[in-house]
């Protein structure tokens, strides 16, 4: 009798294991904000916005809900696509309501709690404040905060969720913004082969990648500072001699800031095409070519960039691009906790 049961036991085991892997079974949605030990202290601390699972989930519902736009056609996720590290894949600039286009490239969203300011010109000073811009910009979502709150407070799912998240009976502007900050603030991206290298894992990089890393450290890392791969500063990286967009100067009104833009992190750079503040470059090859041969002179061009470019060899360019491809965090791009809750 005992011997007869053994195959059944094995079968059950196989069945259970296969069940576990079945994607139809909901995956664990529990979230906490990952802060790797080798990252600096975050700028945004959640001290005044206690992070909770429900707060995060409310933010996630809002992020994916086109009701935030005037005609319910545009959500945050319309222009911030997870598979593109929450940038807008293959769009130099993005579609707002009524097919209106902005004039700057949609930035990727990750590691936001380490950023000192937001937007290409750094005009926004707090993660919680950022969403007001796309919601109220007439060429993005074109709404008013008043209308958005009115529409949200008509829906039971939001009333129920804000009760769980904040213990209140309706969403006000502060709860809207704080829950979005919880969702976006939890988007930590730190699981790449470059992170393996940073943590000293042996053989994380092959010789080409190591060579690319060394070129990067020598030529790029003063702005794209490790390990976040940005120093959060603003520079003119020699794209134009005359500026069609004055960039940081719009915020500071200082002539010395004309044509300067935020230094973006290079994490997930292989999937956040196109590149630069106006999305003018479609490939990493074009970007590397710019730094190699395309730096043009202007009144504010960064002093660390040689006019005419670094004159990389073909091998150096190849190695640099190979290194940049180690910065993609596939787990982050496919993390179900950051995906559209409507499809789960």
């Amino acid at each position: 009798m005992k011997r007869n049961l053994f195959p059944l036991f094995i079968f059950s085991l196989v069945f259970f294991v296969s069940c576990k892997k079945d994607p139809a079974i909901p995956v664990d949605q529990t979230i906490e904000v990952e802060q790797p030990s080798y990252f600096p202290s975050p700028v945004y601390t959640f001290d005044n916005n206690t992070f909770t699972q429900d707060g995060f989930e409310l933010g996630r519902m809002l992020f994916y809900d086109p009701v935030l736009s005037l005609d319910s056609t545009v959500s945050c996720a319309t222009c911030h696509q997870q598979f593109a590290a929450f940038s807008n894949f293959d769009h130099p600039t993005s579609h707002g309501i009524n097919s209106l286009f902005g004039k700057r490239n949609t930035p990727a969203l990750y590691n936001l709690i380490w950023k000192t300011n937001f937007m290409w010109d750094g005009g926004v000073n707090n993660l919680e404040i950022q969403p007001i811009n796309p919601i109220t910009n007439p060429i993005e979502m074109g709404e008013t905060l008043e209308n958005v709150l009115m529409k949200l407070n008509r829906q039971k799912k939001y009333i129920d969720k804000v009760k769980l998240a904040f213990g209140v009976d309706s969403i006000d502007s502060q709860k809207l913004l704080k829950s979005l900050a919880q969702f976006m603030g939890a988007m930590s991206s730190n699981n790449t082969r470059y992170d393996d290298y940073l943590q000293g894992k042996p053989d994380a990089f092959n010789s080409s990648e190591l060579s690319g890393l060394n070129i990067f450290k020598e030529k790029c890392a003063s702005c794209h500072a490790e390990p976040l791969l940005t120093n959060n500063g603003f520079v003119n990286n020699g794209l134009d001699s005359i500026f069609s967009d004055s960039g940081r100067q719009k915020i500071t009104q200082l002539a010395e800031d004309a044509g300067k833009f935020k230094i973006p992190s290079l994490r997930n750079i292989a999937v956040t095409l196109p590149y630069m503040h106006d999305g003018r470059f479609n490939t990493l090859e074009e970007v590397v070519d710019h730094y190699s041969n395309g730096i043009v002179s202007s009144t504010t061009v960064d002093s660390t960039l040689p006019i005419g470019g670094f004159q990389f060899s073909v091998q150096q360019k190849t190695d640099l691009i190979i290194f940049l491809n180690t910065l993609t965090d596939d787990d982050f791009l496919h993390d179900a906790r950051f995906s559209d809750p409507a499809f789960q």
Partner: peptide, 14 residues
């Protein structure tokens, strides 16, 4: 208060 994120009351962005 200008750099402290979302506020309420008199300082509500509404």
């Amino acid at each position: 208060r200008n750099v402290s994120g979302a506020q309420t009351g008199a300082l509500d962005p509404l």
